[in-house]
Design a protein around this nucleic acid. Structure first.
Lengths: 236, 236
DNA sequence: AAGTGGTCTAGACCACCGC
DNA sequence: CGGTGGTCTAGACCACTTC
């Protein structure tokens, strides 16, 4: 355990799992200090993690309590498709539909903040979960980030990008819905006229450089987004 | 300004707006300490806020830098429909379609964690943005939370709940897509067969008591979710 | 009034980046 | 190597809940 607060958080998770029920009170922060021989800030850092996870909640002046049920994470993480599917209990795979060079048209150029007509690499894949179609993905990258010649199909795109010094660290997503056209229905193996989740994603490196613009179209019957939202601010 | 870290955060926001460009470095945390006469923890709390907002990013061992462009918040907030619309530049209004008592069927009972057949209050509303339909909302509440007789139609539901001691503080949302039926298309004034965003929401009070289960169906052409996701952990 | 979480201070050491 | 952010300590006072 690299950090003390993570060790404390894990100890609390274990305690909750083994001997506490929803709405039971945790020991006070000052008790946890002495029990784990850490400072109060470290205890609070641990509890902040657990609150983010939705495992516990606290009430100013009263105490910290075990949350009530199966929870959604408050802070969704940036994950690869493979990790995302694994966390949902599926095995991920992909089928490349196309890979080609293309000059950016208006929307792609705008999302990647490059001039219209800039050369891009495009990758179009069918994403599978347990060998059944779940999404169609279209990724646009500036050739300055990844040239078509460098692209190794079938390997993880994010891993290749990281190798090239373009580790993706942040994505901004726009989630909407769309009616599928006939080709999309055929690829996803759903009835004509089905609705789907459409996710537009712009990803950037730690330095904020725009790396990719992606358009993912998910089968609505097999995929949904889950997230928790809370009122007001995160503390400290 | 109630808290020092918020005052520092605001000062940094102002500095960025007035005199810094994307990727410019902020002063170091130690410099900010002395400039604002606060402790380092307070500076770090302020910066943590700004990172959550996506305004800045930092690199361990190097510095803290201004983010690159218009950003999505990393931590979407729980807001009322009225606030949500206002933040998108619309004026919100509602039309009540129906309000009635109903015994919970299986899905409602499961989401609210009450026995099947428990008495519930149901409110069905058409939500408007700038007087044009944007969503159909169906809310289910246990009568123990809000009885049909207590319901004041046309007033803010969340405000009424807060008055009754059921302030909603956290929601878990599941976002998916759906094809609209004919009645829904008519209400939302979209062509038959249109797709829509479907948001299932379970809200709870601070104590984790389940307050409402809601099903919102948004016009896909007028509404989308935006959120940022990042890799790995939030600190302390 | 006592106990809880929320904010803040002053200082320390570590891990990482860049020269 | 010096400077940066990341973690941690020990202690203080404030705001709120509970009795």
């Amino acid at each position: 355990m690299a950090h003390k607060y993570e060790a404390v958080a894990q100890a609390i998770r274990d305690t909750i799992a083994s001997s506490l029920r929803p709405h039971d009170a945790l020991p006070s922060e000052r008790d946890l200090m002495t029990v784990h021989s850490v400072s109060r800030q470290t205890v609070r850092a641990a509890i902040a993690r657990l609150i983010d996870e939705g495992l516990v909640y606290n009430i100013h002046g009263s105490g910290t309590y075990v949350g009530s049920r199966d929870i959604f994470s408050k802070a969704p993480k940036l994950t690869s498709f493979t990790e995302d599917m694994a966390s949902r209990g599926f095995t991920a795979s992909s089928r490349v539909l196309a890979a080609y060079a293309l000059d950016a048209e208006e929307e792609v150029a705008r999302r990647l903040a490059v001039p219209v007509g800039s050369p891009c690499t495009v990758l179009r894949r069918l994403r599978l979960a347990d060998n059944k179609p779940i999404a169609i993905e279209e990724v646009f990258l500036p050739t300055t980030v990844l040239d078509l010649d460098q692209l190794r199909l079938g390997e993880s795109l994010y891993a290749q990008l990281a190798d090239l010094g373009h580790e993706v660290i942040r994505s901004e997503q726009e989630i909407t819905a769309t009616a599928l056209d006939d080709e999309q229905c055929r690829l996803l193996e759903v009835p004509p006229g089905s609705a789907a989740l459409c996710v537009l994603r712009v990803s950037s490196s730690r330095q904020g450089r725009l790396i990719e613009f992606a358009r993912d179209i998910y089968r609505a019957d097999r995929y949904s987004f889950r997230l928790a939202v809370t009122k007001d601010e995160s503390k400290r």
